[in-house]
Design a binder for these strands. Structure first.
Lengths: 342, 342
DNA sequence: AGCCGCCCTCAAAGCGCTTTGAATTACCCC
DNA sequence: GGGGTAATTCAAAGCGCTTTGAGGGCGGCT
């Protein structure tokens, strides 16, 4: 059942039927009702392929997921981000297209999506410092929103980001206020822009109190449980061991906790831990009571906001670059307490 | 730059250019080379929207992700599955379309994807016992592959699944051989079909040795770390506590480990743990040496196989239902040992 | 009455490709 | 040289929708 058939059945022209269904004003209300009723009765759905060709719009948005083929890391926040943005697309009649491509193919993928007319815009994930993708997309003229930011890019672009620097600064200050001086930072890989910002927040807070950052207490690795464990093992075995940890993710925090407990210490009393909590649906920080003290910002919400922003810039091409900086909330859990007195 | 422009530039008809680029035989080799060269030079990419309309194919595959709006659980295996299937689509020139929809909208989404011609087929995720989606898709005539199986559906359909029953049976036997008798099963929600199969494997192995399953040692919950912890706390505080655990996921296993260590017990000596390891990229079971003894099957590989199967049934509509049953390997880690002598 | 303007409807062109069926050319063999 | 065949190329008709520009009908105004 296509538009033509439906029009024939109704004794109307395809033009009128199309207009009636798409809410154009120049159609008699009585006619419109008749058309709508018939469309429902015959279970008519316009062919998306035809609409796309006729309108020249893809009605689709691309998410290009780089996969480092070598060690095949798939970012764990990805699922929740997708869930958030997916909601928005569903509401707006857009399709979400996922391209999983090896790192080095990403630029080519953008060109392809653009010139073949597969998408109307893209979301850029996991930006690096001075990320080359931004220039590529600008040059292509393909609307895009970056989830995160890219320090060093002199271009202005649309982004949605958490105030990572501030979050880690506040968390550090909180630990300092509790008397901690030996604070370990368990960071993500610093090729990721957000990791750099987090370290900056940490250093700034330390510097503001005239404290040195102890390099032996810093680690920047893939954000896994094991790496959290290892970093903590290292930091706890120093001559002057860490009394507090600042972790970039829940998983790392879990690894740190394991190391603490493995040494017969108690988290929240002997050693304090603060994590960054992306509020992932399958990695909840407790239920009623938070387990970890955390700076929290929902990545799902970030997905929603990014999608909304992207649809906005797609529909209004002239818009100046949009920015949305989210503040993480600092929530108190059971994993922090005053620094132990020596 | 579209086909017509390119044809004009070459002094050829669009027909010939199209055929030259698509590798049809009825075109002179010299001409083809000329066309291909010009296409490359002018950076020509055929418009995907037009191809789709002209061919009547969507060149896209749908993944419908049900999201229980209430507690918003997004399955953690999802990212890796997508990564696997995405690779295959990329190779084959297919798009992957993700629809994140509330549970109750799923059927409507299938109808929509089908009748609007948005996709050529779909992957069904997280099948439940006697899953209604299977009948819906059969009736619609939309090609599909189920990741998992649905007990109770009398229909035959395409699926890719792990032999969950066998995996848990083997794991249970392994524990029994080590002398364990009080074995706790930390399962996923039994509304999920795979969870039922896992329990069956467990019960069968127990029954084969004439052992009763202790209901106080069974739990079926969302597969999170916290739930693993709670289940273990419960199982360890019984009058006759569990000496071994069988966990449906890595996260649950981590929770169990925490409960064990929290009681001053040592995993692998005082209490044994076996997990089901989906081989997720950000939840690796150790690096060189596995931490947990595990039944392992890569969900990423399952994604690849499902995608390949789906593309197969799309291109050959007459095919009888395809099945692919993967065996999980039992890998030995540091988390299991002989049952402690009382 | 006549004319204008409004409301509604329609025919037809077009989106950029594929594909059918026909046309042209080249070639071969008797 | 003619007829047949094979090798190339092309014109044109879709695919199913949107959208432009035009047309028909009708009431209101002068």
């Amino acid at each position: 059942m296509n538009l033509k058939d439906l029009a024939t059945k109704l004794g109307l022209s395809p033009t009128t039927v199309s207009r009636a269904l798409n809410g154009y004003p120049e159609v008699n209300e009585a006619t419109r009702e008749r058309v709508v009723a018939a469309a429902r009765r015959h279970n008519y759905r316009p062919n998306a392929r035809a609409i796309r060709l006729a309108t020249g719009r893809a009605l689709a948005v691309g998410h290009v997921i780089p996969v480092i083929t070598h060690n095949e890391i798939m970012n764990p926040i990805f699922g929740d981000f997708i869930a958030g943005s997916g909601e928005v697309y569903a509401r707006s009649g857009y399709e979400m297209i996922l391209s999983v491509v090896p790192d080095e193919m990403e630029e080519a993928t953008y060109r392809d999506l653009m010139s073949r007319g597969t998408v109307d815009g893209v979301i850029v994930h996991a930006p690096k410092t001075d990320d080359p993708r931004i220039k590529v997309l600008k040059d292509l003229g393909l609307p895009f929103v970056v989830h995160g930011r890219s320090t060093g890019s002199e271009l202005d672009y649309n982004w949605v980001d958490v105030n990572n620097r501030r979050a880690f600064q506040r968390a550090t200050e909180f630990l300092l206020d509790l008397g901690h001086r030996r604070i370990a930072l368990v960071n993500g890989r610093e090729s990721m822009d957000f990791a750099v910002r987090r370290r900056t927040g940490f250093s700034d807070a330390m510097a503001a109190r005239g404290l040195e950052v102890a390099t032996e207490l810093l680690s920047t690795t893939e954000m896994t449980e094991i790496n959290g464990y290892r970093s903590a093992e290292n930091a706890l075995s120093q001559a002057a061991p860490a009394t507090a940890f600042l972790c970039a993710s829940m998983l790392q925090g879990m690894g740190v906790r394991r190391a603490i407990q493995g040494r017969g210490l108690r988290m929240g009393r002997d050693v304090s831990v603060i994590i960054f909590d992306d509020d992932l649906s399958y990695l909840r920080n407790g239920e009623d009571l938070p387990i970890f003290t955390a700076t929290r910002s929902s990545v799902r919400e970030a997905g929603r906001l990014s999608a909304e922003m992207l649809l906005g810039v797609i529909s209004q091409p002239g818009l100046p670059p949009q920015h949305r900086l989210l503040e993480a909330e600092l929530i108190l859990g059971q994993s922090t307490g005053p620094a132990p007195v020596l």
